[in-house]
């Protein structure tokens, strides 16, 4: 378990898998999927889980690492992890989805990201962490700026959300640009506080 100030990163176990149905079908997937709208049945979710279970036994250097994000009072909030890990490029593509919208914009995601970055650089010896988001996702863009990622690519009109074209953006952070979690906690002035969501974004 990786312990943060507002959240812990824990194995993506049963309590998380049970919530996937809601998290796949609600607004969280719209934001993480760049405008996607899923209609996933319990059976479709179960098939995905069965496939993950099968793959996780493989020795495959391109498999990612999945964490569940959990609030300090033990509430499962969503997923944070490495969606794609390339050992030979020493490159990690990160992914994030807090499935409970009332927790958005309250600092939980930044706390989780700092934990994940320390893990990625210090344990997996990755050289570069990167991720992609869309130009409509102000929360992620703000987070990238706070944590020190660099905007590297803007793929024009590559995301469609409710009939409007947006860009996919690629952000990157090299290991030598990462000051470490402790330094960023200090710099951003993050501290522990009561776990009930204080600011909710819709």
């Amino acid at each position: 378990m990786l312990e943060g100030l507002l959240v812990n990163l824990v194995p993506y176990g049963k309590e998380f898998l049970e919530r996937d149905h809601r998290w796949m079908n609600n607004q969280a997937s719209f934001w993480s999927g760049g405008g996607e709208r899923h209609f996933m049945t319990q059976a479709m979710i179960a098939a995905r889980h069965a496939q993950w279970a099968e793959e996780s036994g493989d020795i495959n250097d391109e498999l990612g690492v999945a964490f569940g994000v959990q609030s300090k009072d033990g509430t499962p909030l969503g997923y944070f992890g490495i969606n794609w890990l390339s050992a030979h490029h020493r490159l990690a593509m990160l992914g994030a989805k807090i499935g409970e919208p009332q927790y958005w914009g309250g600092g939980y995601g930044t706390d989780a990201l700092l934990l994940l970055l320390d893990y990625t650089f210090d344990w997996l010896d990755v050289r570069k962490a990167w991720l992609m988001t869309t130009s409509m996702n102000a929360r992620v863009m703000r987070q990238m700026e706070k944590v020190g990622f660099r905007l590297e690519v803007r793929q024009r009109q590559s995301a469609l959300a409710d009939g409007v074209w947006y860009d996919w953006l690629a952000y990157g952070l090299l290991r030598e640009e990462w000051p470490g979690r402790a330094a960023l906690v200090e710099q951003l002035g993050l501290r522990e506080r009561a776990t009930a969501p204080e600011s909710g974004a819709k």
């Binding site: 020493r90 570069k128 660099r150 690519v153 803007r154 690629a170």
Partner: peptide
């Protein structure tokens, strides 16, 4: 040209950019 993924991949002894 829409950007450069910096030092993104391993190529012949070095970590090189990718032009997108």
């Amino acid at each position: 040209h829409e950007g450069t993924l910096r030092q993104h991949i391993r190529w012949d002894g070095d970590y090189v950019d990718m032009e997108m």
